[in-house]
Design a protein around this nucleic acid. Sequence first.
RNA 1: UCCCCGAUAGCUCAGCUGGUAGAGCGGGUGACUGUUAAUCACCAUGUCCGUGGUUCGAGUCCACGUCGGGGAGCCA
Length: 446
Amino acid sequence: MSLSRSAPIERRMPPPVARISQISKYEGQEVELRGWLYGKRSSGKLHFLQVRDGSGVIQAVVFKNEVPTEMFARADHILQESSIVVRGTVRADKRSPLGFELGVNHVEVVHEAKDYPITPKEHGVAYLMEKRHLWLRSARQNVILRVRHTVEKAIRDFFDEDGFTLVDAPIFTPAACEGTSTLFEVPYFDLGKAYLTQSGQLYMEAAAMALGKVYCFGPTFRAEKSKTRRHLTEFWMVEPEVAFMDLEEDMTLAERFICSIVQRVLDKHEREIREVLERDTSKLQTVKPPFPRMTYGEAIERLNKAGHPSKWGDDFGGDEETVLASQFDRPVIVHRYPADLKAFYFKRDPADPRVALGMDVLAPEGFGEIIGGGQREDDFDALLGRIEEHKLPVEAFEWYLDLRKYGSVPHAGFGLGVERTVSWLCGLHHVRETIPFARMMERITP
RNA sequence: UCCCCGAUAGCUCAGCUGGUAGAGCGGGUGACUGUUAAUCACCAUGUCCGUGGUUCGAGUCCACGUCGGGGAGCCA
C-alpha cells in the first residue's frame, strides 16, 4: 500500500509515533502522526495539511518533489476530517503558531470522510449542538474539554491534598430535599418511585460525621423547566462537607478552593484560553484571596445604591447577581440570606433569627452563582421543627435526624457547579458548551 | 407557563412597496513552491418549514400550526 521512496529490499524501521503536544521533543527526527485532516491549503507544488491528533494541530507540508507523484496528487484530495497517517521530519519554523511543522515524506488515508458537515465557516449553535458528536473535534471545543478536565482534576487534588475523603453519594434517592416538583421520577421495583439526585449533601453530612472531612463529586439532576444559558437538566457538582466547621470557615474554604482551581487552569491553559477562546485572562489573574464578603442586607443596600431597587426578602435573579458581581474584580460572597429564601437544613443565625447561615459565591462578569452552601442546623428540635414547617415527610428524614441525635456537631459545606465554573473560566456565553453532551429541557441527543 | 425573534442551497445568510431565487463556505475541474478562514477562474445544487387565505400572481402579505433560538419565571 505504501509507496515508500526507499528501496523495497531494505525495509525501513517505521518512525516512532508522536503526539502533537509533545512534538518539540522530536525536532529533527522523523515521526509518524496518526490523526485527522483538520484543514488543507494547496499551492501548486506543495500542499499544507493541517493534521490534528487530539492533542493539538500541526501543519504537515507536502512538497511535490519529496513524495511519489501519485501520493502528491492524492494528498490534494483528502477531505476534511478524513483519518490519516503522515510521516515526516519535525522541524522548527517561525511561521508556525506551534513553532514546528512536519516535512512530509509519506501520507496515507485510513478512512475517507465524505461531506463532513462542519465546515471552516461559521455555523449556528443549534446546528452545532445537533452535530455535537462531531463539534467536539473543533479547536474551541478541544480547549473547553481540556479546561473542564483540568477543573475536575484540580477539584480532586484540592480536596485530596487537604485531607478530605471522597465519598460517593447515591444517584437514586427516595424523596426530595424540598418538594418533589423539580425531581426526575423513575419507577423503582416494588418500592414505588425513586428520584434522581438533586444533591448529595444530606448524605455528605452523614459521611462527615464518620470521616470528618468529605466530598462527593458526581452528576446532579434538576427537572425544572429552565431555559436559560445557566441551566442544564444534568450537570456535575462537587460538594464538600466538614464536621466542626462554621460559616466563616466555610467561606474561607470556598475561597481557597476557587483560587486553587483558577490558578491551575491558568497554569495549564492560559495561552489557549486567550488565543483560541479569545477570553481576556487578565480577568482571571485577579482572582486571589480575600474575596469581598457582604451580608444579604448589605447586598440589598448596594443594589439600591447601584440604581437597582430591591427590598429585604427579594431573592436575587441573574440581573441582581450581575450588578453585584460587576462591582468587584474577583468572586464575591453574599451570606446570611433571609431564612425563607433558603432550604430547611440551614442553621439560623443566633444573632438574627430572620437569617440563615447560608452563603453564595457569585462569579465576576455576570457568570452567576457558582457556589451555594452554608452551616447546617445541628440541633435536633430545631431541625425537626423546620422539617415540619416545610411540610416534608418526617419518616424520610429520620436517618438525617439521627445525625443530630448521636454526637451532633456544628458543620458546614457547599456545592460548586462544574459547568458554571468552566463557563466562567472559558468566558462562554452558555453552559451547554462546557459539558460534552448537554442535557437540556429540549435536548437529549446526541 | 409567559414575552420577544426566527425558519430560503449541505452550512452561514441576502432577497426593498408582491412579478417564479443569490453570495460566501463546503464539493468538483484547472492555475499557483510558504499558505494561515490562502487566492484566482469555471461548474453543480433548492418541497423558499407546513396548511389554509388574500391576489391575475406569494419566498415576500394575513391566520393557524410545527420546529428552533433568546430571555423571564422557576432554580439550595
